[in-house]
Amino acid sequence: MADDASDPARLAFDEQALALADDVWRVARRLTRDLQAAEDLVQEAYARAFRSWRSYEPGTNMRAWLLRILHNLAIDNARKQQRAPEQLGLEADDYYLYDRLGGAKNAVADVDRLVERLSPGPVLDALSELSLPFREVVVLVDLGDLSYQEAADVLDIPVGTVMSRLHRGRRVLKKALADAAGEDAA
């Protein structure tokens, strides 16, 4: 539509959408396997968002709206690649994981050391090892800063499923980080 470019509502939409590029990028980066795939996904998502900007309802969470578009595209791409679901190592008790993450009983010192131990490398490795249904929930809530309900709307699943996937996804993450911390300490 030729006169859209001067429409104040469209201009406001554009600026608001472009200002969310960092958030959209961070989510896309974790839903794809490499930089190029992430760039392609973000470009595709923004192209779709700009084309259908009138379907965005002003006043609602634009980040969630953009991430829904991104997610739908990412799912299409993942389906094309037909990834097999991975096994989750969920047998470990949470307290056992905290013990391994935190080490001995001195809480303050342990947390200090934990921050040092959780360097980006092992965290990113652990995230990339999560199977997509779990990774996308962790990514939408932790990086996209969506509420459980917003994540449920984006993924088109019940809010209870968001919560259980988040719990299990983080648990696998913690197990991987505990293993990485254990290897460093060994």
Binding site: R29, V111, L118, V123
Partner: peptide, 20 residues
Amino acid sequence: RCYSLEAEVRTAVREACAEP
């Protein structure tokens, strides 16, 4: 201590993924 570690893990995820 568990709560503190849980929050730390979440912070670590955010920080590891903070690239603009």
